[in-house]
């Protein structure tokens, strides 16, 4: 990226060949007319600023509701005027026209400018009275002093049963449904008796729930007991073979194999957004993977250029092996 012109990326998931062709043609027209302020390029869906999705595509729906997705991305569903969309997103009228796409690009440009302005690391803690934070406290590793089982309603259509001391939970549906909940939603948490529990054979390790709740809570800020300026280091790596995660999470985990002074330092070391880092730190804290200390700043590496290192080589390895890329 050079000069003063900001570079933004647009991508797509699940669009038909015809829509894709049309999108490219309209983008060429917009760019050559000079109607936009930023330099818009086609990019990878995991890192693009704007992702156009087809609501009819399972892959696109999955992508749109993925809690590991960068929350700063704008997702726009390409739909008919009167069609509704089952997930939270912008809409772009089908068929894609120059004026409607231009409006959308302008909105994304405006939002990207605001995000840049707020990028100065004033990292908020989530309000302690938020109900999701109360659930987080219940799930927090080592916090359960009693052997109560809790029924938690409001995360999805079905309740979640949490047996914190037994390190398990029961959810009688696909966990994918738990990836979509609104972190501001009203939750009800009530203790229940053993005879009110669904069949025990559906129990899952509680870390799967802790991880999901932690990732999702990142949307409202750091967990109340964490401080953005603390020193963070992993005690152990997340059980990636068990947990829903992205390549960014592997990258943050590797960075946290060494102590890092503050959330911003993690973001610098990984070149990932603060939102991504906060989500990971919350999830790792809830699962008990994280060691946090508030002593004086320790000498951790500051951001260094990675050009000239073997990053490019590892990206070649990843492509050849079919591993999702960190860099898109």
């Amino acid at each position: 990226m050079g000069g003063d012109v900001r570079e933004l990326h647009i991508s797509h998931v699940g669009l038909s060949e015809a829509d894709l062709k049309r999108l490219k043609a309209v983008m060429v027209a917009i760019v050559s007319n000079g109607d936009v302020d930023a330099r818009w390029c086609m990019g990878d869906a995991t890192t693009a600023n704007l992702v156009l999705v087809s609501p009819d595509s399972d892959v696109a729906r999955q992508f749109a509701v993925d809690p590991a997705r960068n929350p700063r991305q704008v997702i726009a569903a390409v739909v008919g005027e009167s069609d509704s969309v089952s997930f939270e997103c912008e809409k772009l009228a089908w068929p894609i026209r120059l004026t409607s796409l231009l409006d959308l690009l302008k909105r994304v440009e405006a939002r990207a400018s605001k995000v840049d302005a707020s990028d100065v690391p004033d990292i908020p803690n989530a309000p302690a009275d938020n109900q999701l934070m109360q659930l987080a406290r219940l799930l927090r590793e080592g916090e359960s002093a009693d052997d109560l089982v809790w029924r938690v309603s409001g995360l999805s259509n079905r309740p979640v049963y949490v047996a914190a001391q037994q390190r398990s939970f029961i959810y009688e549906d696909s966990l994918l449904n738990l990836l979509q909940f609104d972190p501001h939603a009203a939750l009800q948490m009530e203790p229940i008796t053993a005879d009110q529990l669904p069949p025990q054979d559906q129990r899952k390790p509680i870390r799967m729930l802790q991880w999901l709740i932690g990732l999702r809570s990142g949307r409202i800020g750091l967990l109340p007991w964490l401080k953005a300026g603390s020193t963070f280091r992993l005690k152990q790596f997340p059980e990636f073979q068990l947990l829903h995660h992205s390549s960014e999470h592997r990258r943050i985990a590797a960075a946290l194999s060494r102590p890092r002074s503050g959330i911003q330092a993690i973001s610098d070391a990984t070149e990932l957004s603060l939102a991504n880092v906060i989500a990971f730190v919350n999830a790792a804290s809830l699962c008990g993977y994280l060691k946090v200390s508030d002593g004086g700043a320790i000498a951790t590496a500051t951001k260094k250029p990675v050009a000239g290192t073997r990053r490019a080589l590892f990206q070649v390895f990843r492509r050849a092996l079919g591993i999702a890329s960190n860099d898109g």
Binding site: A253, S257, R258, V306, R310, I323
Partner: peptide
Amino acid sequence: SEDVLMVLDVLFNMLEVSDAESV
């Protein structure tokens, strides 16, 4: 293979961190 690929990717990430801090 997904387990093996996950382990390989974590290794690549660990080496990237090591590289970035030895520049």
